Lab assay of single mutants.
Amino acid sequence: GKELVLALYDYQEKSPREVTMKKGDILTLLNSTNKDWWKVEVKATANDKTYERQGFVPAAYVKKL
């Protein structure tokens, strides 16, 4: 199945390749080969529509579930 990670801290994206997350968010882990930056998929809701974004977050800010 898919691997999930838990956001340990809030993170505000600093570039278009990154994604914003809030502490407590559960994210889908896409790639953890880089030890510093993990690629995740974030589900977000805006205007009653759910959309998914993929991007990088600092590996130290998340932990595998």
Rank of each mutant, 00 (worst) to 15 (best):
7 A>Q: 00
42 V>D: 02
22 K>T: 08
29 L>V: 05
8 L>K: 05
21 M>Q: 01
17 R>Y: 13
62 V>F: 05
8 L>W: 02
11 Y>G: 01
12 Q>M: 12
64 K>N: 06
53 R>Y: 06
62 V>T: 03
53 R>M: 07
20 T>I: 03
1 G>V: 14
49 K>T: 11
53 R>A: 06
28 T>Q: 08
23 K>P: 03
40 V>K: 00
46 A>S: 12
60 A>S: 13
29 L>I: 04
51 Y>E: 09
16 P>R: 09
60 A>I: 09
45 T>A: 10
32 S>W: 10
47 N>F: 12
32 S>V: 06
50 T>G: 10
11 Y>Q: 00
14 K>C: 12
4 L>H: 08
39 K>N: 06
50 T>H: 10
18 E>P: 03
49 K>Q: 13
34 N>E: 09
57 V>A: 02
17 R>T: 11
39 K>M: 15
30 L>G: 01
7 A>T: 03
34 N>Y: 08
7 A>H: 01
53 R>K: 11
32 S>A: 13
41 E>N: 07
62 V>Q: 02
21 M>N: 00
52 E>A: 15
19 V>C: 07
17 R>D: 10
57 V>H: 01
35 K>L: 08
34 N>W: 06
45 T>F: 14
10 D>N: 08
18 E>V: 05
55 G>C: 05
20 T>C: 06
22 K>G: 04
46 A>E: 13
61 Y>A: 10
9 Y>L: 09
20 T>W: 05
31 N>V: 07
9 Y>K: 13
60 A>P: 07
62 V>P: 01
41 E>R: 10
8 L>F: 03
60 A>W: 09
26 I>F: 05
3 E>G: 10
11 Y>F: 06
55 G>P: 01
6 L>K: 08
19 V>H: 00
10 D>S: 08
8 L>Y: 03
46 A>I: 15
12 Q>E: 12
52 E>G: 14
50 T>W: 10
59 A>C: 06
13 E>P: 15
50 T>N: 11
28 T>D: 04
2 K>R: 14
22 K>L: 07
42 V>C: 12
15 S>P: 03
36 D>N: 13
51 Y>S: 10
13 E>F: 06
19 V>M: 07
19 V>G: 01
10 D>V: 03
17 R>A: 11
5 V>T: 02
24 G>R: 01
5 V>A: 09
43 K>Y: 13
38 W>L: 03
54 Q>S: 11
11 Y>A: 01
31 N>W: 07
23 K>H: 05
50 T>E: 13
45 T>K: 12
19 V>W: 04
34 N>I: 05
32 S>G: 10
48 D>C: 14
56 F>I: 06
61 Y>C: 15
63 K>C: 15
18 E>G: 09
8 L>S: 02
21 M>F: 10
14 K>T: 12
1 G>R: 13
41 E>S: 14
41 E>V: 13
47 N>H: 12
44 A>E: 14
28 T>F: 10
5 V>E: 00
56 F>W: 15
10 D>K: 03
28 T>G: 07
6 L>P: 01
40 V>S: 00
33 T>F: 09
16 P>V: 09
60 A>R: 14
48 D>M: 08
27 L>V: 06
57 V>P: 00
18 E>L: 05
37 W>T: 02
3 E>I: 15
16 P>H: 10
17 R>L: 13
36 D>K: 14
65 L>Y: 08
17 R>K: 11
37 W>F: 05
51 Y>D: 08
